[in-house]
């Protein structure tokens, strides 16, 4: 379990760095993003989308950090978390629903969507819609296989 504790510590550090960076970016967008929105090619919706995405990621990561810290303080919780992450049934379900591949490609597509938003609105919305479709598909498959096994 000591090895796993070290892994959790690394994860906490990584997530904290990301949260700090995201909060700083959020502050920057709040003060500067809407000024740029005056330019014709830049739309308010895009700033809104970025703000929403960042906020949800910050909330999600803070929740995860709290979860890890709580688990590290309690050995039973730590073992439960370890078992949960290394459970063979969960791994099977994840593999069958294409968890890792779909999640990774969706994240890449979302980032591509955000960047393309600065150049072409239609391409941006198409990419984001595509990513959300993939994520929904992944969730549905996960639900299906969770019921099946």
């Amino acid at each position: 379990m000591e090895k796993y504790k070290k892994i959790l510590k690394k994860r906490i550090i990584f997530l904290t760095i990301f949260v700090v960076f995201a909060v700083l970016l959020q502050i920057f967008i709040f003060y500067n993003g809407y000024e740029v929105a005056d330019i014709e090619s830049f739309r308010d919706e895009l700033v809104g989308f970025q703000t929403g995405l960042l906020c949800s990621m910050i909330i999600l990561f803070v929740f995860q950090i709290v979860r890890y810290i709580r688990a590290m303080k309690n050995d039973t919780q730590l073992k439960k978390l370890y078992n949960c992450e290394n459970d063979e049934r969960r791994k099977d379900i994840k593999q069958k629903s294409g968890g890792n591949v779909l999640l990774f490609s969706s994240v890449v597509i979302i980032f591509a969507g955000i960047i393309s938003g600065y150049f072409n609105e239609v391409v941006s919305y198409t990419l984001i819609a595509c990513a959300f479709f993939q994520l929904n598909l992944c969730a549905l498959l996960k639900l299906y296989y969770s019921k099946k096994y």
Binding site: K80, N83, R89
Partner: peptide
């Protein structure tokens, strides 16, 4: 589940 290193859901299944 805790003793054998798995989750309650897996034991149920």
């Amino acid at each position: 589940a805790l003793a054998v290193g798995t989750t309650r859901q897996t034991i149920t299944s």
